[in-house]
Structure formats: C-alpha cells, structure tokens
Design a binder for these strands. Structure first.
Length: 799
DNA sequence: CTTGACCGGGG
DNA sequence: GTGTACGGTCAAG
C-alpha cells in the first residue's frame, strides 16, 4: 500500500537479534502510523592503508572480537568510492547486525595493520536511517510498503520512499507546568486547543480546577489527558530538567511508571552531556528552554531567559510578579489558592503561546537539517550545522571527517584564539542623528565571495589561488567549495522565499510556514563560520574561520573609509555595522550605499539599518570609550540598549530600574534630571520607601551550605535561616536582602521572609550608584556626587 | 593575565 | 547506546 505521511520521531528496536527502525508518523488525515525499516543495516567505512583487497582479506581471516572476547559479526563488506574532501578514495563499507556493535567492530577493524582509519562509526542509527533514506521529518513523503499487524492505527514495512505532493498534517499540541511544594506535585496545569485545566490536590474555587484526593490520583489523570487527546506535541518550559524529572520521581514514589509514549512506552531519559532530556516515543516532546538558549538567545534583548522575560519580549505579555516564596506561603496557609491556580495556568498558557510561535521554526529547522524535532529543539548551533553537513555530505557521496578526540579538541582550543571582528572605539558621550548601516549576512557572503572552505585550503595543483597577505595559506578558486556551495544554496533559496512572502497575506498559514523556513535558512547560513572555528567540529578549519573574520574586518574598514571620504563622522562600528552621525546622512544614504556596494565583490551587500535620534556611548574606567556598550533611541522614543550588563538576576530590581531610567533621560539630553532621578532613588532608599521585591537579590544555592568553602551572602542567609528551623535545599534560588546592623555584607544577608529592615547604604553604594555611574560618569558625575556629597559645579556640559 | 569554579531554567 | 557534548562570567591564584 502507499501512504502520504510525515515522520515526527524515529528510533530502533532489536527483535530476535535483528534491528528494525520504527518511524512514528502521521498521515495528512491524522492517522498514526509506524513505518518499520527492516532492511537498513548499521555500517561504517574503513579506509585501507594500501588498497581495499588486502584489507578485505584481513577482515575475513582475522577473528574480530570486542573487549570481552565476544566475536563480532561482519554481515557484509562492500567496496565503495567515496570522496574525502576533493579526493576520491576506494573504501570498504562494513555492515554489522546491530547498531551497538558498530563502535566495537570499528575498534577491532581500526587495529588491523591494513586499516588506515575508520569513518562514520558514531552516527546514531535513527539519524543514519533518516539520512540514508532521504527522509526529512516535517516534510511529507509517500511511503510504499506492506501493512502488518502492529501498534497504533497502522504499521507498515517500508519498501520505498518517494516524494509527496501532499500538505503536512496538523499536529495537536499541549503545554503543561507543575507546581511543586516540599517535593510534591500539588498542581499541574495543561493548556491547549480547547483545553484549560489545572489539576490540584486541594479544592480550589475555579471552574478549570479538577481536585484530587492525593498526588497519585492527580498523576494518573495527567497521564490520561495526554493519552486521551492523542497529543502530538508536548511542550513546556525547562520540562527536560525539571518537570519530567519530577514526574518520573513522583510516579516512582507511588509505585507507578511514567509512560507517555504513543504506544505506551515509558518516558526515556536521554543523557546528552550536561543535560538529560525526556523522550516520549511517537510524540514530540519539545522543551522550549533549550531551543531558546541555543538558537534564539543571540537575537533576544532579554538578558535572562526565564519564561517571564522571554514571554514579555516575544509576546508582549506582562510580567507575572508572584514570588516563589509567596506561593509557598499561600500553599502552606491554604489561602489564595485561586490565585495560585491562576498563576499555574498562566505559565502553561505562556508556554503554549510561545510554542505557537516557535514550533513552526523548530519544524523547519528539523526539515532542513533532517533531524527529528526532538533533536532540532535541543541541539546547539554547532550540532545543528553538523547534522545538516552530514546529510549534504551523504548526498554528495562524501565521507564525513571524524569527530575530534578529547585531546584534539584540547589542542584546537589551546592553539585556538584568532582575531575576531573589527570594533571601532567610540568617543563616549551623547550623539544626535545616528544612522546605522550593516552588512547583509557578512560572514556567509564573505565565504561565498572568496570560496572559503576547508577542502580547498592549500589544495595541491591549484591554479587560481586566493592569498591574503597576513596568512601563509590560500584558498583554491578553481572549483566552488562545499561550504560556499551550501551557503549559496541557502541564501538563494531564502531570496526566493522572501519574494514569495511579499505576495502572501501575512496572517496566512502559508506565510507563517515560509517565514519560518527562510528564518531556518538564515540561522543555518549564519552558523557555518562559527562552526568552522568550533573545536568540536568534524569539519574544523581554523584557517577558514580566521580568513573569514580577516576579510570581514577588511570590508568594514573599507566602508569606514568611504564614509570618511564622503565627509561623514563615523561614531562606532562593530563587526558588520557602522554608526554614522550627521543630519544629512539619511538623505545621502543611497549615494553612500552605492559607493560601498560597488567596491564589494558580488554577493556582498551593505544595507541601511535605521536612523536614531540619539545615541549614547559610555566609557571604560580609563576614560576611553567602551566597546559594545551603548544605547540608542529611535524617533518613536523606543530604546535599544546593548551591553549594559547589570540586567542580571544577581542585581536588585531597584538598581536595574534606575539604570534604565538614567539611560532614558540621558538619551533625551536630560542629564541633570537623570542625576536627580538617582538622587530620588537614593532618598527613597534612605526613607525605607522601596518595596522589598525591588531589593531582593536572587542567587542559586547549588550545594548544602556547609560545603561552601568561601562565604557568600546567599549562603550565610541560608545558614541563619536553618538556625531558625527553615531548611533550604540545594538547587533552590535564594532570595535575600541585605539588612542593617554590624559586620560584613554576608553577615547581614537575610532571606526575604526574615528580613525586618534593609540597609539603605548597601543598596545605595553597591547597587544603585555603581549601575547609574556606569552611565553618568561620562557627564562628569562621580559616585560621591550622585550620593550628594560633592559639589555640582560645571556638571552636565560634557559629551 | 590565566585558571578554575560556578551558573543557567524550573519550584 | 553508532554515549558522556556549552559558553560566559567572576573570583582566586
């Protein structure tokens, strides 16, 4: 039979010693189908020292065993021609019966004297399947095969994969969030299409709350809802590291198993380095947090990546200002439970709405890299890029380079550092009429323009060599390299999509899909440069990365030169942008762009980014202008603040707010008012008028207090709390304030709930004034003056 | 200046 | 499980 379907998850199982792939899929009509591949065998390549014949003989003659002396089966050996860079090599493709034997067999084969090296022995089998069968999750394919008795709506044995014209199915989605008090799950909210529910172990007077006898009943119901709704996508915020771990623990505590696989499989916890992730077989568990940290964070203004800040930035939703301490108190006293439930539901709703925006992007990233969505939302840039490269290499009959060993990585990072982008040192102060120009995808376009690619580096017998003065290596221009070819493909496809977008209604599904697709292409095109310089990369090439930044510097410096020739005042520049001051810049910008773009190689382009009424640049302690720390204000009064690092958890809100207000006033050239604002805050602190939430400092307690070697305020606060009978467990965020009295800062740190007063001097001297001075020192203010201790003559006339 | 410890999100 | 992978900041050395 033939079925049009989209694969959303894949794994393999061993049955009677034979491996079979299970690809969990959905048809356009919404049927759940398992596609089994029983014919693909795990394999790797062996590159012979001399020629394939002698190596093949040796493999046949010698007994290959694992560490325990178990014999390893070689199921099939085949001679293949594979490209290694640009060189074609005769290699052996060695097949074995189960994936777990690949690394063992590879080890045994590597030790043979006729083996030069082995390749592609560490590619997880479900990824191998997707690559070798040319299947991309998120792309509909026509599958031909025989239907057998099995799980879900249908199970079919794969015979052939073909292209399909059909649309993708709709996936159902649900977001959830747990509330845990004293280690137990007391509430669980779930939010999806037509679903707004809070499960609770307490009676709550809200129509969306379902109350339960105890935690065990709540957990059963939680599982039941996911199963009954036949959920395709389960999402949430930090669900890998928190919610699912907690669920597993609590299910276990009640003697139950957490089973949320589509076929009833238990939730599997994959270790991946620092993290573990919860895998629901046949469904897509998409934790938004790793995707946001790895992929989105560089493009976000928000410095902290908690759900509140990210939702605020992406959805414009206001901050949820219930503190955890408050929630604990409510639960303890069993009061305000309506609000408690409301809060719980809100978090699921925010996660769901974020997912609405992000899942299309994750799906497109999955489609383009060929990874299952589960992986696409968790991997770092480098890993996403590498998976894309593995697939493209396979399609060109290229063998992938091996991953570096630990030692190689260390060597790479030690010899590592090379010069990065060019940063123009600004003169600190306030500027008016600032126009910003930047290069469209600087590094990708540089790589295409100069054919920067590892396999054409110092290529023997090359005729057309691109040489740079400062380097003793060159890039061959005879033939387009692997990386430029991929970048050009992505960039061109993206142009097409962008022009297609213009013809579409912005609210349509099609628009959203195309938008996400071009966004994924952009992410990928921009990741190649970083990938080449990443010490864990298979296709690592320091020279390529080095040449790319060097060329980037050259082009930005050339641009600055053109600007100066035209009589413009250059204020600042960083890597791919120039900031130019002057009232007439906007009118003459076309002329400027023309001149610069005429000098650039084909494919590269400078663009106008925007005009800002004012711009402020701060200085370093030495008085020299600081790089990467500035604020801009557009015509509508919108602020763009970059690099002011105090927007962090371990700074109190009062310091952050004051700094932002100071920047806002400074950009309006209201310098002395800015200083007044600081003084007002100081007075408010002295008068004990600032609410305690604005004074709280948050720091995570990572281990039991007694294990800390050095003293730290949050640790001391916890120690004092435990003397009062309140124990705080590791992994808890400690919210403390600095109170009055004698002794060091640590000695005066108290948990918020025990703090009876606060020390205004601490907040003035260590929080508000340093943050504000970071800005106001440019205008001649010292810390002393802001605290009202000095003279104020001659202020406000700097800059 | 270099090295090593700490931290993120969640409750 | 074709395992064991981050990247930035800050205080201490």
């Amino acid at each position: 039979m033939e079925l049009d379907l989209t694969i959303m998850d894949a794994d393999y199982v061993i049955e009677d010693g034979e491996v079979k792939i299970r690809a969990f899929s959905k048809t356009v009509e919404g049927e759940n189908v398992i596609v089994e591949d029983r014919s693909l065998q795990p394999y790797f390549y062996a590159v012979p020292r001399e020629e394939t014949g002698t190596l093949r003989e040796q493999i046949k003659e010698e007994e290959l065993t694992d560490d325990d002396g178990e014999e390893l089966e070689v199921r099939n050996i085949e001679k293949k021609i594979r490209k290694d860079g640009l060189e074609e090599k005769e290699v052996l493709k060695i097949e074995t019966e189960i994936p777990a034997n690949v690394p063992k067999l590879r080890y045994a084969v590597s030790k043979l004297e006729h083996t030069d090296e082995c390749r592609e022995f560490d590619i997880p089998f479900y990824k191998r399947f997707l690559i070798d069968r040319g299947i991309r999750p998120g792309e509909t394919v026509k599958v031909k095969g025989e239907q057998i008795d099995g799980e879900l709506d249908r199970t079919i044995i794969l015979e052939e994969v073909k292209e399909s014209e059909k649309e993708k199915p709709e996936f159902s989605m649900l977001a959830f969030d747990l509330e845990v008090i004293d280690g137990e799950i007391v509430m669980a909210s779930m939010y999806g299409e037509g679903l707004e529910k809070v499960l609770s172990t307490a009676e709550v007077d809200k129509d969306y709350v379902e109350a339960f006898e105890g935690e065990k009943e709540l957990l059963k119901r939680f599982q039941e809802i996911i199963e009954d709704r036949d959920t395709d996508i389960v999402t949430g915020y930090n669900t890998d590291e928190f919610d699912f771990k907690k669920l597993r623990e609590r299910f276990q505590a009640h003697g139950m198993t957490l089973s949320l696989g589509r076929n009833g499989d238990r939730v599997k916890f994959d270790r991946r380095g620092r993290f573990s992730s919860a895998r629901l077989k046949g469904r897509m568990h998409l934790d938004l947090y790793p995707f946001i940290t790895h992929v989105l964070a560089p493009g976000l203004d928000s410095e902290t990546l908690d759900l509140d800040s990210v939702a605020e930035e992406m959805l414009g939703e206001n901050k949820n200002d219930v503190s955890f301490e408050m929630m604990q108190q409510w639960w303890e006293d069993q009061e305000n439970l309506e609000e408690f439930a409301e809060y719980n539901l809100k978090d699921s709703e925010l996660a769901f709405r974020l997912a609405k925006e992000l899942v299309p992007q994750i799906m497109e990233l999955s489609r383009i890299t060929g990874l299952i969505p589960f992986d696409a939302c968790r991997l770092t840039y480098g890993q996403l890029t590498e998976n894309f490269l593995l697939r493209e290499a396979f399609n060109r009959e290229m063998m992938a380079p091996n991953r570096p060993t630990r030692n190689q990585r260390r060597r790479r990072s030690n010899q590592g550092a090379y010069e990065g982008g060019f940063v123009y040192t600004p003169d600190s102060g306030l500027y008016t009429d600032v126009s910003v120009f930047d290069f469209r995808s600087l590094y990708p376009t540089v790589m295409v323009a100069h054919n920067i690619s590892p396999e054409v580096l110092d290529l023997d017998g090359c005729e057309d060599r691109f040489v740079m003065e400062e380097f003793d290596f060159y890039f061959c221009q005879d033939e387009q390299g692997f990386f430029p070819e991929l970048i050009e493909g992505l960039v061109e496809s993206r142009y097409e999509l962008k022009s297609k977008m213009k013809e579409l209604d912005e609210d349509s599904m099609k628009y959203e899909q195309i938008y996400s697709r071009q966004q994924a292409q952009k992410i990928l095109a921009n990741s190649f440069y970083g990938y080449l310089g990443y010490d864990g990369a298979r296709w690592y090439s320091k020279e390529s990365a080095q040449a790319t930044t060097a060329l980037g510097r050259k082009y930005i410096e050339d641009t600055i030169e053109v600007a100066e020739e035209m009589g413009f005042e250059v204020v600042y520049g960083d890597t791919d942008s120039v900031f130019i001051r002057g009232e007439d810049v906007e009118d003459r910008k076309e002329d400027f762009l023309d001149r610069v773009n005429k000098l650039l190689p084909e494919f590269m382009e400078l663009e106008f980014e925007g005009y800002f009424e004012t711009g402020f640049f701060t200085s370093k302690a030495s008085g020299e202008g600081a790089k990467k720390k500035y604020a801009l204000m557009d015509r509508e009064g919108g602020l763009k603040i970059t690099g002011f690092e105090q927007v962090r958890r371990d700074w109190s809100q009062v310091a952050k707010d004051t700094q932002k207000e100071v920047l806002r006033l400074v950009l309006q050239d209201r310098i002395s008012e800015a200083a007044e604002a600081v003084k007002d805050t100081i007075q408010g602190l002295k008068d004990q008028e600032v609410p305690v939430e604005d004074l709280t400092i948050h720091t995570t307690l990572t281990k039991p207090p007694e294990e800390y070697g050095s003293t730290a305020p949050h640790v001391e606060a916890v120690k004092k709390a435990s003397k009062r009978g309140v124990s705080i467990e590791p992994e808890t965020t400690v919210n403390y304030v600095i109170t009055r009295g004698g002794g060091s800062i640590s000695e005066r740190a108290e948990l918020v709930r025990f703090a009876e007063d606060y020390d205004p001097d601490y907040y003035i001297d260590n929080q508000v004034v340093p943050a504000a001075t970071r800005v106001l020192k440019v205008f001649g203010y010292t810390e002393g003056q802001l605290k009202g201790k000095g003279k104020q003559s001659g202020l406000g006339r700097f800059g």
